[in-house]
Nucleic acid binder design. Structure first.
Lengths: 192, 192
DNA sequence: GAAATAGCTTGATAAATGTCAAGATAATTC
DNA sequence: GAATTATCTTGACATTTATCAAGCTATTTC
């Protein structure tokens, strides 16, 4: 599974074989069965996780016990709880596997060292953060300005790989609408 | 006005007098009257802007002509269009002054140089990006999971400096609810 | 300081979306 | 492969929020 990670890295940053070895030395492969937690609310998140295979979600549970999905991550995505990682506080979000998955974990200390030692690595990691932030802002725009149907349309075009991969009630949760509304919206769309 | 910026910087990063001089040399002060644009949709955004005085907002206009506010920035905040800055594409958002304001502008090239030359500067800029992203994710959670009243309550506690400073229809726009609903929510809250 | 504009509130009504319940089908588990 | 569980759909109805319109203040402009 490290090969998937290596292939991803080499497409993003110019790294030598020695660099790859250094990265490999601090990478930990973790296999997850469907429904298995990678992070549970209350625990501290101390790593960066790269998804080599499968699909995971990050979500928070509100006062009424409802889940709200913040992130989906499939192959070649990163996932984690940045808040907990940065502050060291217990996480308020959960991460679990939607499918049997494999992730590459690099703990914070090792990851920071890699960033310091490998400038190209650092650079593309920074770019990911930049792009993630921009995507996050775009999602806010969608959430505050779109109707339910527009939210779903936008989801299909921005995350096409997920539309037929994850259950629809999870897509609904991600979009902030009810599963029933999503079902009706989809029904309407086919009639057009 | 550079003094405000200097004071802010010195509270965030360990910088020498020479460093400050270097920063000052590439800083451009810009004064804005209320309602004046700092960035207009269609133009390319090429700087980082620090708010030394006043209050600005960043917003997008939807297909129906409605404004949706993405960001408020008061003293000691940064504002800009990261998407346009990163990609070089024309901005789809607008930035204008809600009050008479003064901003410190540093263009992209100079800013990147500062980051390369001043490690502590770079470090705290990265931290701001991290925290901004976390805040953005928290806002998504609020937007997809809270009722109108909860959104406003949350706004008051996360952005107390804005609650009595910007018009309420702008707060409503930021929260993704109508101005009338916000008015009613506020009315209800006083009765409790 | 009169006139114009912007901001806020309130009522009446409409529209969008949520909730609850039931049933159908598909997928998973033992 | 039978039983269980998860997923999706649909209907009926409730609730939340939006929209439209009017009026009232406060603020800004000339």
């Amino acid at each position: 599974m490290f090969e998937v990670f290596r292939k991803y890295l080499s497409s993003k940053a110019n790294l030598s074989d020695a660099d790859f070895e250094r990265i490999k030395a601090v990478s930990v492969i973790k296999k997850l069965r469907k429904h298995q937690y990678l992070l549970q609310e209350g625990d501290v998140w101390r790593s960066n996780a790269f998804v080599a295979k499968g699909c995971l979600r990050r979500y928070q549970i509100d006062a009424k016990g409802q889940e709200h999905i913040l992130t989906f991550a499939t192959e070649n995505w990163w996932i984690g709880d940045r808040d907990s990682l940065l502050t060291g506080n217990p996480a308020i979000s959960n991460i679990d596997a939607i499918e049997d998955s494999e992730v590459v974990l690099i703990n914070k200390e090792n990851f920071d060292q890699l960033c310091q030692q490998l400038p190209t690595f650092n650079e593309f990691i920074q770019t990911i953060l930049q792009k993630s932030f921009i995507a996050s802002q775009n999602r806010i725009y969608a959430t505050i300005s779109y109707t339910a149907e527009e939210k779903y349309q936008n989801f299909i075009s921005t995350r096409p790989e997920l539309a037929n991969r994850v259950p629809q009630h999870m897509i609904a949760s991600y979009l902030g609408i009810s599963a029933e509304t999503l079902s009706r919206v989809r029904n309407q769309m086919t009639k057009k």
